[in-house]
């Protein structure tokens, strides 16, 4: 299997590819664009809309590529390994769970941060928050599509690490 096939989330062998750079560039502009539009249309920025975008992508990822075998932990592994690898060129670095519906996913080199402009260190964490909403939404969308209702909170304890706190509900 070629690398492309390996990282194509099990879609057809003749899947079409574009450059990762194109994807990277679009992702990098996505947040500033959403913020700008939010500001001009609604008068304030609204990270929830970015989360919604991710959610929609998450739903489609499942329908198009999804693996439904297994319990919630298996789904988390799917997200941490397969989905993250294709979206962000690396896997989630750490997955923890209390085996009672709470999962913590840590990415120590979050890729979207590389695309951010960084004025001052103190402003940076505040600027980073919207960027986290997109992957948080993807996680929530994937879970929901597979029948798992969950709340997903993302935070940056310090660059370039991102931590996702997922609480599944019954």
């Amino acid at each position: 299997m070629t690398m492309e096939q390996e990282i194509s989330l099990g879609s057809e062998p003749h899947a079409m590819f574009v450059s990762y750079n194109a994807f990277d560039l679009i992702l990098g502009e996505l947040v500033p664009q959403m913020q700008e539009v939010s500001q001009s249309v609604y008068g304030h920025t609204n990270p929830a809309r970015i989360e919604q975008l991710g959610w929609r992508v998450g739903l489609a990822i499942v329908e198009r590529f999804g693996s439904t075998k297994g319990d919630t932990l298996e789904i988390m592994k799917f997200i941490c390994k397969d989905v993250w690898l294709v979206l962000f060129r690396k896997q989630i670095d750490n997955l923890k769970t209390n085996h009672r519906g709470v999962y913590v996913l840590t990415d120590t080199q979050f890729r979207l941060f590389q695309r951010m402009s960084r004025p001052t260190p103190s402003e940076t964490i505040a600027m980073a928050t919207p960027y986290l909403e997109f992957p948080a939404g993807i996680i929530r969308g994937i879970l929901e599509a597979l029948g798992v209702k969950a709340s997903v909170k993302a935070e940056t304890p310090g660059f370039p690490t991102v931590v996702f706190h997922i609480t599944t509900m019954h």
């Binding site: 194509s8 574009v18 194109a22 992702l27 996505l30 975008l53 990822i61």
Partner: peptide, 15 residues
């Protein structure tokens, strides 16, 4: 480096 075109289409499309 390549990525599945469908993912990019999905992301752009949602936007």
């Amino acid at each position: 480096d390549k990525v599945n075109a469908e993912l990019v289409a999905l992301t752009y499309g949602s936007l």
